[in-house]
């Protein structure tokens, strides 16, 4: 290993916190959840409206619940149920994915949402 190598590694590591800070900085409560089925357009649902959704994936139907401003996988045809274990999401940018079934949940809030409030 040479000095140049060391410089490269040091800079790379030094730049890391920047990413964490930028991307995981202050969180805001989410307003909507995007349900993303692999290869399809995300479907956006308000976190303000309680509902249970059956989302068709590669293996079968994943069940997504939206309740009291949070969203979660509550049922899944996948074998290890990692998606269900990741629990309820409510902050902007929080995600949970059922990779075997090809479905991802992602909470959207400030800075990403185009609206301050949704009327319905």
């Amino acid at each position: 290993m040479t000095r140049a190598d060391l410089i490269i590694i040091v800079i790379a590591i030094a730049a890391l916190p920047l990413f964490y800070w930028q991307l995981w900085g202050p969180n805001y409560p989410g307003t909507d959840v995007d349900i993303i089925v692999a290869g399809e357009k995300p479907q956006r649902h308000s976190l303000l409206r309680n509902q249970t959704l059956h989302i068709h994936g590669r293996l079968g139907d994943s069940i997504v619940a939206i309740k009291n401003g949070k969203a979660a996988f509550i049922g899944s045809p996948c074998p290890n149920k990692q998606c269900i274990r990741s629990g309820w999401l409510d902050d902007n940018g929080e995600t949970s994915a059922c990779l075997p079934n090809g479905i991802m949940l992602s909470v959207i809030g400030d800075g990403i949402a185009r609206f301050d409030s949704i009327n319905f």
Partner: peptide, 18 residues
């Protein structure tokens, strides 16, 4: 996956890459 949330994975990915 043209989705902003993907950016939240980036720090982890870069850490792992290093």
């Amino acid at each position: 996956i043209p989705h902003q949330a993907l950016f939240h994975l980036l720090p982890i990915l870069i850490t792992v890459a290093i």
